[in-house]
Design a protein around this nucleic acid. Structure first.
Lengths: 167, 167
DNA sequence: CGCTGCGGCGTTACAGTATATCGCCCCGCA
DNA sequence: TGCGGGGCGATATACTGTAACGCCGCAGCG
């Protein structure tokens, strides 16, 4: 059962990595083996994962990996919109379907918001146009020219809200 | 001129500290000398200030201060809504007029948003109801029960946007 | 009075996050 | 062949944050 789940997840990850590679090729940027490995590790994590946890896992393949190794790869993946940073957690998540946002007219840095469960740690990415719009308008009203926006909500996910008594 | 400005700032800070103390007394929480000093230091900084920069300044008064000293004080001040953390900067700012938000019906953790200038580092706090509303609604639409929300916009402030050519 | 519990704080140690810098290699290009 | 840039290895270091222990003052209480 767990095997099936992991196999499914694994193939979904593999497909996402392949799509990412195709996108990078199309943009004329280098999708190297290191970047592929790091993206795979981020996508394989069911929750946001810290840079050093990522580094530990990367060392299974690359014993010599050091902090700059992982940070350089993460910087690249963020620039390409394949990975997002969750500021509240100092951690990283794979982007949910970046190509969908491109087809919606957004660039690599498409608007997004995070819903972070304070109990189980699950983090969902949503893409709400009204939120993005309201934030952009509030900024403009202050004479501010926005470039990148962070919206992160901490609270209880559906599952945890339904079971409030458990420790 | 600079003296006048600093004196004005200084007295404004002193008044804000006094208001904070009154609020804490009214709530039955302890506004100790350490907490007063840390709040003053945060308010005196024209920009968001890091925990360790704060610690350095605190040591002028308290040579023995260590990281836990500053973090405990900051935790308290955040709980009381007197200080906010800017996640993107790993830094802290004094809250702009917390009592105004209370009178508007918000608790100590009133909704707020930050506009962070990527060039000069100036950080403005705004309180836009439509943004807060849109975020809360988007979260609820996903079955999520929100508790605390972070909204941070990076971009160019009015002054820096008006002078785009300067290095 | 002594006991107990708790909050605030000092102190030490450590964990986790991030960047600077140097140098090598490969590859494309003149 | 020389040159330049990107990607990466490697070392060192800076920055941010927390765990754990213990002391002290103070309120409550038998």
């Amino acid at each position: 059962m767990a095997e099936t789940t992991e196999a499914v997840r694994g193939s979904a990850v593999a497909e996402a990595v392949d799509r990412a590679e195709a996108a990078c090729v199309a943009r004329g940027v280098q999708f190297t083996e290191l970047r592929r490995q790091v993206l795979r590790l981020v996508l394989e994590s069911p929750q946001p994962i810290g840079a050093y946890a990522l580094l530990d896992r990367l060392r299974a393949d690359r014993p010599g990996a050091a902090p700059p190794t992982i940070y350089r790869a993460l910087d690249f993946l963020q620039e390409q919109g394949l990975v997002h940073r969750v500021e509240r957690l100092n951690a990283f998540v794979g982007c949910a379907g970046p190509e969908a946002h491109h087809s919606c007219g957004h660039g690599h840095d498409h608007p997004h918001q995070f819903l972070i469960c304070g109990r189980c740690g699950a983090t969902a990415e949503i893409c709400d146009e009204r939120v993005a719009e309201a934030v952009a308008e509030a900024a403009r009203a202050a004479g501010f020219v926005p470039s990148r926006t962070t919206v992160e909500v901490e609270g209880l996910c559906v599952a945890c809200a339904a079971a409030p008594a458990c420790a």
